[in-house]
Design a protein around this nucleic acid. Structure first.
Lengths: 188, 188
DNA sequence: TTCATTGTTTTACATATATCATTAAAGTAT
DNA sequence: ATACTTTAATGATATATGTAAAACAATGAA
């Protein structure tokens, strides 16, 4: 469990007065395991911070979903393109565990942008974080083997990973569930 | 050859008055083939539009560079993270051909942001484009085979691809030059 | 033009993953 | 508890890519 307040406290340029403004706009939301948080075709209304739990981003397919992202405790998520353009999302977001998230709506974020000159700081911070994550992901897919990607993920989130079904992790790594099962056997 | 003015004409929300303001800040720059546009460690000062030529983004390595991006005519490029945070770039950007680009500096872009209420529109547009490119790239690396990635790239830029050394394309696709050589033979 | 360097292709072999099939285990619903 | 469904593990086989070495081609510098 990591509260958004703790998270903010670590971002030095964002002072108390900003937090006051910001926290007044936050909405606490809860979802149960396997629940769909955002469905393909809906427009993303929130930028969300995970206080507890794990979230999965995927393209729903008849045969096999394509899982392309996980978000863990202490990080922001959103169907970002849908959020900033306010157009329909291309994919689903799902709770993999029971989760607690804290969200700010598109409308409220716009208000903050307009209320204070430093308003954009948070939006930029979130955008940078999401962009950096995608960038690192690209490098991971480009330069590491599936086994190395699994180990990297495992080292970052050893406990949390145990709560994710193997087939989703396999898809995220870019291999079949069979192959991941063998990798696990090999490295154990 | 695609001018930035033609590009702007296609973005309907950005009207003439915006173009007037914007174009006055643009700097035309030229680089010759193989020239380094931005070196690792330098801070990116520009967001640039390619009117003519091809650009390569890569991590310089002793043994083998890691080429992770190409930008072609008619698109924007920047060491984006370096640009928005005004901190040192992690990688190199190089001209693969003689190129003509049109750039706007960080300072001038900030001025535009402050001058007009619609100022952010352009910045957002550029950011969206770069984010979308990374997103599609992630899907490509996740769901396509190296051969399929090569064919996709080839179909998008059949002529331009001929101007890029095989080893850079191989790195971008995530395979060795030998493997790409075999793929080319196989599909020809 | 010549020589040296760099880039590309080819061959041989090792290996990891894909695919298909089967069995075991876990999870879900009745 | 039982039956049913989904997920995971295992085995056999095929294939694409990695690696290493060598030949060949293209490029650039002197």
């Amino acid at each position: 469990m990591i509260t958004i307040k703790q998270f903010f406290a670590r971002i030095s340029p964002l002072k108390d007065e900003y937090w006051q403004l910001f926290s007044s706009k936050l909405e606490k939301r809860e979802f149960s395991k396997k629940q769909i948080i955002l469905q393909q075709g809906q427009t993303e209304n929130y930028l969300s911070f995970i206080e507890k739990g794990i979230v999965r981003h995927y393209f729903p397919k008849i045969e096999n979903d394509i899982t392309f992202d996980f978000t863990f405790e202490g990080a922001f998520f959103s169907a970002y393109k849908s959020f900033i353009t306010q157009s329909p999302a291309e994919y689903n977001i799902q709770a993999l565990t029971d989760i607690s998230i804290v969200s700010i709506s598109y409308q409220n974020l716009q208000k903050i942008y307009q209320t204070t000159p430093k308003g954009n700081m948070f939006g930029r911070f979130a955008a940078e974080g999401l962009y950096t994550k995608k960038f690192n992901r690209e490098l991971s897919l480009l330069t590491l083997s599936p086994e190395e990607r699994y180990l990297a993920l495992f080292n970052e989130h050893p406990k949390l990973l145990k709560q994710i079904p193997l087939k989703y992790i396999a898809s995220y790594i870019g291999i079949t569930p069979q192959a991941l099962s063998r990798i696990r056997k090999r490295i154990s």
